[in-house]
Simulated assay, not measured.
Amino acid sequence: MLQVQLEVEPDPAEVGRARRWARSRLAGSGIAADEPLAETLILLISELVTNAVVHTGCPAVLHMLLPGVPTGEPGTVRVEVADRCARPPRPRHAEGDETNGRGLELVDGLADRWGWQPEGGGKRIWCEVDRCVGAAASASRYSEVALGVR
């Protein structure tokens, strides 16, 4: 099991930096950038980091726990974002052309499991994707969620 982390400042530009960082860590763990699993994980990371930096105004820490490194064995990839804001996440449902409000809905549709827990004076939001078994299913679930089928 490999655990890596990145400190993220409360700046929307940090979301792109977190995606680039995550892509390099996934590649180092044997998950190729063009695999559906990698694409799903990058989208999940993007949504969780965006929520942390946009909605809390606090620094955050992105954690990834990668199984079977470097052998690529099946297992569960876990992504966590911890921040210093005690306010719980509030899932919303975006209507029509609204540009905000889909983040946790996407996380719910793409991850095999997700949740959150209070931590110190803040919280930790996490999601898990089952490697190998969940990769293809997650990619097809993305299409359903993005199209509003699910």
Rank of each mutant, 00 (worst) to 15 (best):
P10H: 04
P10R: 06
P10N: 07
D11C: 00
D11R: 07
P12S: 05
V15E: 07
V15N: 07
G16S: 15
R17T: 13
R17V: 13
A18C: 12
A18M: 11
A18H: 12
A18G: 12
A18L: 13
R19F: 02
R19Y: 00
R19Q: 09
R20A: 08
R20Y: 08
R20P: 04
W21V: 04
W21H: 12
A22E: 01
R23L: 07
S24H: 02
S24P: 04
S24R: 05
R25F: 01
R25C: 05
S29M: 03
S29Y: 05
G30S: 10
I31A: 10
I31G: 02
I31C: 10
I31D: 15
I31V: 15
A32L: 12
A32G: 14
A32C: 09
A33P: 14
A33W: 00
D34K: 08
D34R: 13
D34P: 03
E35I: 01
E35W: 01
L37R: 05
A38C: 02
A38Y: 00
E39S: 03
E39L: 05
T40F: 00
L41P: 07
L41T: 06
L43K: 00
L44E: 08
L44P: 09
L44V: 03
I45C: 03
S46F: 02
E47P: 05
E47Q: 04
E47L: 00
E47R: 05
E47C: 03
E47A: 06
L48Q: 10
V49D: 11
V49P: 02
V49H: 04
T50V: 04
T50L: 00
T50S: 10
T50K: 06
N51V: 07
N51W: 08
A52C: 10
V54P: 11
V54L: 12
H55K: 09
T56V: 14
T56Q: 14
G57Y: 05
G57M: 02
C58A: 12
C58G: 11
P59E: 13
A60S: 15
A60F: 12
A60V: 12
H63E: 13
L65Q: 14
L65I: 15
P67K: 07
P67C: 09
P67T: 15
P67S: 12
P67E: 13
G68S: 08
